[in-house]
Design a protein around this nucleic acid. Structure first.
Lengths: 113, 113
DNA sequence: ATATTTTGTTTATTTAAATCATCATATATA
DNA sequence: TATATATGATGATTTAAATAAACAAAATAT
């Protein structure tokens, strides 16, 4: 990517862990299916070298390559829940606090009628 | 990436959908938290332009940028289940067929004792 | 309404991601 | 066993991803 970003160059532990595990998971899924890297790479139009990078969890590799590998392996559906707004409790709470669904309680009873 | 790969240049619909939704989800989570792109970008060491790319679901953007954004938003844990070997039914089935846990049934009863 | 902040768009520059070739080293398969 | 296939590692080349500056347009705040 040119001028490699901090997050790629020195990812925090949690990010690095997520990437390496994702790579390991993809590798395991591939081996279980008895597929070669080249076979998967060819299907999504990348080289076997990038496929190797993916299995290492390389931070700078294009996200489409990762997603494509998952797609070929039939493991894409599990991506749908990532950052799903419906399950973002924190976000929902903050939103609700700003735009309450029910009218805020009045200090005193309305006396204009 | 140089020589942009096919999967990035012309992703299949399922891949494109996954990316755009991921971007939308990240955007929604950011807005709910009342954070600016610049605020998130600065925390993970990318520019606001890349943060904009992420919210568009740009295929060629480094995966670490996406994962980093999820990390800042506190939405990283949902990545852990992606391609989790324990939930890869297809893979488990194939593996089991090759290396059966229980000994395969003998054609005839063992008569050597 | 006015000021401020955030986001969108464009252009130019930098530099590393992706490819390819090659050889070494496993890891199957006959 | 030998043979074929798959993976690992290195270096050179290509080219587009990421940045930055500048200005416009929206959105938000005062």
């Amino acid at each position: 990517m040119a001028r490699v970003s901090k997050i790629s160059q020195a990812p925090p532990f949690a990010v690095e862990k997520t990437l390496t595990r994702l790579g390991e998971n993809i590798r395991k899924a591939r081996l279980r299916r008895k597929l070669t890297r080249e076979a998967i790479a060819e299907k999504i139009g990348i080289s076997r070298y990038v496929m190797a990078d993916i299995e290492k969890g390389k931070p700078t590799t294009a996200i489409a390559a990762y997603i494509g590998a998952l797609w070929v392996l039939g493991l894409l559906d599990q991506m749908d829940k990532v950052a799903d707004p419906d399950f973002d409790l924190e976000g929902k709470t903050l939103e609700a606090a700003r735009s309450p669904k029910t009218a805020p309680k009045r200090k005193t009873l309305s006396d204009d009628f």
